[in-house]
Amino acid sequence: MNIERRDIRDVTILVLSGKLMGSEDAAHFQNLIKELLSGGRKKILLNLGNLSWINSTGLGILISGYSSVKNAGGVMKLTNVAERIQAVFLITKLSTVFETYQTEDEALVTFGG
């Protein structure tokens, strides 16, 4: 998995691409989240539009990141979730955990000032 970072005002957008599936991805993602939180960046938007698929290990990676951000008093939201991945969120009820928007613009306005 590759992660591209963009900052728009106080929101950090992380664009995930490739496959989210294993322990190397977990370390990569968690280190980046820690770095953002320690730098005071607590509003995080994950753009999953270029993520081709995810397995249950990958779901665990997202949950771990979500919990880290929430415990630090921050917010993590999702955008551009492909149908195949959205189906997995729905059946596992993770759709009730992750706030999800169709586009970056729609998500950005919900973070507030």
Binding site: S56, G60, I63, S67
Partner: peptide, 12 residues
């Protein structure tokens, strides 16, 4: 169990 990081594979 919702926030557990593992245990979804067989359910899926």
């Amino acid at each position: 169990n919702l926030m557990r990081e593992r245990g979804r594979g067989i359910f899926i």
